[in-house]
Design a protein around this nucleic acid. Structure first.
Lengths: 183, 183
DNA sequence: GTTTAGATGATAATTACTATCATTCGATTC
DNA sequence: GAATCGAATGATAGTAATTATCATCTAAAC
């Protein structure tokens, strides 16, 4: 089966195109084009890290020191509603956001929670073909593949038991993924 | 493509078998067999609704009025750790739990958030065949299909904007799905 | 420039979950 | 069956993420 992570080059090109169209898409979606919205979509599209709302907040704050965290949360939700972003909620962590709205899936490291886009054309094709399941009308789908990333594979054990929400905040992996840096 | 919701009959049979083996599986997993754990797995297996922790709490409380909500959260996590339950976290709702640990997927109604098990053998087979993606070592996967359930299709619009977390608590659909009743 | 619906910022509130810790209990050993 | 002990539980405080509220502001239409 063909399986490929989405390359950085392709992602960046896609982001540039999306950014260029953003104002027009807002108008089409009935939304005002505000500096805050522009800054937020720009921040989101600039990262391959599927950042959390608070990370986007920190990025945007450099340009808009007075922006409110509530605005970031609201705007991200709004963007999801008009199809300009996707919310990715995996392994019961807080929400992560994805600026790539083309059909694709996600691989997530169960240890450091790093997320990467992945394409599995066969699965996408199969899912695309599903229009109904029983009496349910299919609208879309979200496939999350749980995995160990190269950095985490091999060293240490998967976190368990008391290492739940928040307990690893501040670890090297976590802070890296929170700030949007690449490995 | 073959697509089928898991029938109530099959689910019930599965639940009965799982319940019969539960004590033995706890011991094998190094866990004490406590009345609380038995009550919680029984509650979970009795429902096809993928209930939330607080709903399971309410179910269990009828038998164990002194049980603590913290115990329910802890126990559900513990059950997930020994592979006796699955955590399903979709559409950024709170965690839902599934007592069915055989390979299967989920259909969720984007409106009332009702969840049903579904089997898509072709997709399961494809995903099973994935052992690596790029440098990521695949451990498992979770496929959520977003849909409209028969009850919600056709009437009303999908919730938007301010209708986010908690804002529809108490609606007919929500309370039905919270209490574990069937439609 | 006016108007106005919608957007924003500030902040309080809520929710779901986790941590802590004293007490209790299941399981093992004798 | 009593003793032992580590694990499990209950009670509750704490936390983090998100949402609600509301006064103020602004983008867009006129």
């Amino acid at each position: 089966m063909e399986l490929q992570l989405v390359s950085e080059g392709r992602r960046a090109g896609y982001a540039a195109r999306r950014l260029a169209e953003f104002a027009e898409r807002c108008r089409r979606g009935g939304l005002a084009v505000t500096p805050q919205r522009l800054a937020i979509i720009r921040a989101l599209l600039s990262s391959a890290e599927h950042p959390r709302a608070d990370v986007i907040y920190e990025m945007v704050r450099r340009e808009h020191p007075h922006i409110s965290l509530a605005t970031v949360h609201r705007t991200l939700d709004t963007l999801c509603e008009i199809g300009e972003a996707r919310k990715v909620t995996m392994l019961h962590d807080s929400a992560r956001y994805d600026g790539n709205v083309t059909p694709h899936h996600h691989v997530i490291c169960v240890k450091c929670r790093r997320i990467r886009d992945v394409e599995i054309p066969d699965v996408s094709a199969l899912l695309d073909a599903c229009k109904e399941i029983g009496d349910f009308k299919v609208l879309g789908s979200s496939l999350e593949i749980h995995a160990l990333c190269p950095a985490c594979a091999g060293r240490g054990r998967t976190r368990r038991a008391t290492q739940r929400r928040g307990s690893t905040r501040g670890s090297a992996e976590e802070s890296r993924s929170r700030t949007g840096e690449e490995a």
